[in-house]
């Protein structure tokens, strides 16, 4: 190998190593943010936890489950959507209980039937009592209840969304 060949070979090595190093740095500088960018929605905490006012406690009748509907809007990325809720407010001497209208079997919507003195589910013929207890059918547990609180006579429930 002549002297100039040796110089060329070492220069070539240097250029290759430098190019590889610069390439690695640039790849990391772009690559790591790119991964964060793609994974971003999966890393978001998401979900909300809010106290929703249902109105003056006095305005709800005693001993009859009374339906109350409201909607909650949510923002997911660029998309704004609303979700509607129906709950049943049951007032008695003991206090107040707010029941979810989602059947505990497979999430159909139950409705209060005053003539049967029960909540009925249209999907698989379930029945729940006024307190939400299972009277008939496949549901594995009573209707869910919301955490409640009363502020200045106003009834609020805690709505937690995933």
């Amino acid at each position: 190998m002549s002297e100039s060949d040796a110089v060329n070979a070492s220069r070539r090595k240097f250029v290759t190593a430098t190019a590889a190093a610069v390439g690695a740095v640039m790849g990391t500088v772009v690559g790591v943010p790119a991964l964060g960018y793609l994974a971003s929605p999966a890393l978001e905490a998401g979900g909300t936890d809010a106290w929703v006012p249902l109105g003056k406690l006095d305005s709800f009748p005693v001993a009859v489950p009374t339906p109350f509907s409201f909607t909650r809007s949510r923002v997911n990325g660029w998309d704004k959507s609303t979700r509607s809720y129906t709950v049943y407010v049951l007032r008695d001497e003991a206090g107040v209980k707010v029941l979810s209208s989602r059947c505990t079997h497979l999430s159909c919507q139950v409705t209060w039937q005053a003539d049967q003195n029960a909540f009925t589910c249209p999907c698989h013929d379930a029945k729940f009592g006024a307190q939400g207890e299972v009277l008939h059918g496949p549901p594995p547990k009573p209707l869910d209840t919301y955490e409640t609180k009363i502020e200045d006579g106003t009834l609020l429930i805690r709505v937690v969304e995933a």
Binding site: P33, A34, G36, Y37, L38, A39, S40, L43, G77, W78
Partner: peptide, 30 residues
């Protein structure tokens, strides 16, 4: 990468770009 979040519709184009800038990690950089 931008096409992952961008939406080419008048209803959402502007909002989707806003989302990239403020809602997505490193979106401003990309």
């Amino acid at each position: 990468l931008l096409s992952v979040y961008y939406v080419p519709s008048p209803d959402h184009a502007y909002d989707s770009v806003q989302y990239i800038m403020t809602g997505v990690q490193f979106g401003w950089l990309i």
